[in-house]
Design a protein around this nucleic acid. Structure first.
Lengths: 240, 240
DNA sequence: CCTTATTTGTACGTATGTATC
DNA sequence: TGATACATACGTACAAATAAG
């Protein structure tokens, strides 16, 4: 007779939480499989899942279907006060520490591309996609569009250098300025959620920025989706 | 838990379908390889193949072993769903036209009040709640806190004048400056949804601002929830 | 024609998400 | 809870077709 006043799943959650808090798992490390944990605790897989669900709700772990359950952050390692200054982002949107390039693609300009980048419909547009990390955790998705038509070779330059600024320099654009930034909020779709390791439908902060080259022509139209749970943009109104 | 309401392969299929519909690919043009797409979306190649399979079934693309996947048709009937948006300046946050005051309340300062407004815990704090409209439609909820303790009569002044600036003038604060603004994204709760006439869970853009009087003391700690579907905050980098 | 790299197709195994009984 | 079934997703390996030299 297990006079279990506390539910079994809860005690399992407690044990796993303690184990994580004690630093037995590195950030991003995979936990034992549910089946293994079920065997270890002598319970059904459902009971383990109940415990996992609790930990996921607390933001401690993140389950990826078909992959496993991963430790998101050790509470001590991830200060909630972590912030990114907004005008740093304005100067360097998409250039947060630990940027991982996903793809560079050249395709035809759609109507909205053409309008945003001052090109003709069908003209070549380079599309760069990347993920930004902070402390090992993904915090933002970036999708930038560039007028390959106007600055040929830009796509290749972007492929070879993680720095957008240096890629610009390669094609002869030594300087560029942020013209405007628009701010909205959206909900994470399935792929965004997967990449940012958050749940589908989680709130995202979307910045849409336009930059121009010295000659006045638009050179970058970038959109950045920030995982709002992990990052807070701050505006400093003092001295810029 | 990933709460995978939408299968990842489906959201990938959706994105590729939209991309094709927007005219980014000419008829017969080759898509990115499965490996590239897998990297771009952060999934296994099988997941991309599942999405491709769906598109092939729809007759949109055709895969040729050893060659690639090619666009067969480019449907032109893609709905762009252009939304009407109100563009407002960020400086106007919380000071939008057509403000409807909901309540002015004086209460004792909590810990966070005290910290934000540089008061002692228990000191008098005025809380102003209002809704902002644009063109008859609610676009934002505002909750501002003021140090009634330091500027007695502020609550009464706020009750009698819809303009915060004029209320400040009544208690002798002729000028004040925005010190900082923090930006995050959240989901609308039931009451917010009701006030803003949006659905529960809709994305909200939350700005948290701190303003100071000329003497350096904080005079307003305001939070504004913008209905992101109706409003876009824009930052102008020219003169500011 | 041959070689090599690239790309899609197929197969098997494992793990999680969800539903049902 | 326990047990089972199926859909989704990842990982790896290799076969087959294609393209480029």
């Amino acid at each position: 007779m297990t006079s279990a006043r506390t539910p079994v799943w809860k005690s399992i959650a407690d044990e796993l939480r303690r184990s994580i808090a004690e630093g037995h798992y590195a950030q991003g490390e995979k936990l034992q499989t549910e089946a293994e944990l079920a065997k270890r605790f002598g319970v059904n897989r459902h009971t383990v899942r109940h415990a996992m669900s609790a930990l996921a709700k607390e933001g401690l772990v993140h389950a990826r279907r078909g992959a496993g359950v991963f430790v998101l952050a050790t509470p001590l390692d991830y200060p909630l006060s972590e912030r990114v200054r907004f005008h740093q982002n304005l100067e360097a949107a998409g250039r947060l520490p630990d940027k991982q390039m996903l793809s560079v693609e050249v395709r035809a300009a759609s109507e909205s591309d053409a309008q945003g980048l001052a090109l003709n419909v069908g003209g070549a547009v380079a599309v760069l996609r990347s993920v930004s990390f902070a402390g090992g955790t993904p915090v933002a998705l970036v999708e930038s569009r560039f007028p390959e038509e106007r600055w040929p070779g830009l796509a290749d330059a972007l492929r070879q250098d993680t720095s957008v600024t240096r890629a610009f320099a390669v094609v002869g654009v030594g300087d560029y300025t942020r013209v405007s930034t628009r701010l909205t909020a959206t909900l994470a779709n399935a792929t965004q959620a997967l990449r940012l390791r958050i749940r589908e439908g989680a709130p995202l902060l979307l910045t849409e920025a336009l930059s121009k080259a010295p000659d006045g022509f638009p050179i970058e139209h970038g959109r950045t989706w920030f995982a709002s749970e992990r990052i807070t943009l701050t505006l400093d109104h003092q001295g810029n």
